Amino acid sequence: MGILNVTPDSFSDGGRYATLDASLSHAEEMIEAGVDIIDIGGESSRPGAAPVSLQQELDRVMPLIFALRDCGKALSIDTYKPEMMREAIAAGADMINDINGFRAEGALQAVQDVDCALCVMHMQGEPQTMQAHPEYTDVVAEVREFLFGRTSQMQQVGIAPQRLCIDPGFGFGKTLEHNAKLLKNIDALQNDLGFPVLAGLSRKSTIGALTGRPVEQRMAGSLAGALAAVMHGARIVRVHDVAETVDALKVWQALA
């Protein structure tokens, strides 16, 4: 899954792909590099990020969906707003990737009677405050319990389990220690809950803490993080550096 942020304030590439031409050019690069899913985000979810209006998000995301829906790759829309979900699905989106776990009022209704894929993520708190003082008694058990509760409720309203994947939410209200524990338990989460895990570590503060590198110098660390996630069972890796990750996975899978 390649990241396509059409925001001015994302933590890693904010502003680089804020225009339609720049976004489409980057999408074409990812397609050439071998991306499977393009994850389009119109609102930054970095720690401390301020929310944007529905209209702003629609204005940023909808032109990209219309431009890319016939590109031959799956389109994922990174949003927690039910109205954005409805518009994206009607325009041809293949997946909704919700950092809020479809908890917003109307979110389940927006996705229950369609057939697109859904990614359910765990987040402690909200983007503005989530990294202030994240605390858990047992991070793996608590994330598992949350994801079990959300996926159960979604199935109760008629959403087929085959549509679901889960995301432990690396960096969303977690310390380095929390992220490491979750990473090492990806297989356990998949086995316990029965859904494929999506792992998003690319360029995040965990990589920075381990390497001492600023965000623009975290490619090597991010590649190692993606390989570690796959080694522990992740079925989807969400990354900024598609070509490099594809190459790393090809070599690792051939020689491992």
Rank of each mutant, 00 (worst) to 15 (best):
I3Y: 02
L4A: 11
N5T: 09
V6M: 11
F11K: 10
F11I: 07
F11T: 09
S12F: 13
G14K: 09
G15V: 11
D21R: 15
L24I: 13
M30R: 01
E32S: 08
G34W: 02
I37D: 04
I38N: 08
S45F: 10
S45A: 12
G48V: 09
A49Y: 02
A49I: 02
V52T: 06
E57K: 04
V61Q: 09
V61G: 03
V61D: 07
P63S: 08
L64Q: 11
K73T: 15
K81P: 10
R86Q: 14
E87T: 14
A88W: 09
G92K: 13
A93Y: 07
D98R: 01
F102W: 00
R103P: 01
A104L: 05
E105P: 02
E105C: 11
L108N: 01
Q109R: 13
D115S: 14
C116M: 09
V120Q: 04
H122W: 12
Q124M: 14
T129F: 10
E135L: 15
E135H: 15
E135G: 14
Y136A: 15
T137Y: 13
D138Y: 13
V140N: 13
F146C: 08
F148N: 07
G149Q: 05
G149C: 02
S152P: 07
M154E: 05
Q156Y: 09
Q156I: 12
G158W: 11
R163M: 04
R163F: 01
F172A: 03
F172R: 06
G173P: 10
K174P: 12
T175K: 13
L176Y: 08
K181P: 12
N185I: 11
D187V: 03
N191M: 09
L198Q: 00
A199H: 00
S202K: 00
K204R: 04
V215Q: 06
R218E: 00
L223E: 01
G225A: 04
A229S: 05
V230C: 07
M231T: 06
M231H: 08
I236H: 07
I236A: 04
D241F: 04
T245N: 01
A248D: 02
L249T: 07
L249M: 09
W252Y: 13
W252D: 08
A254Y: 15
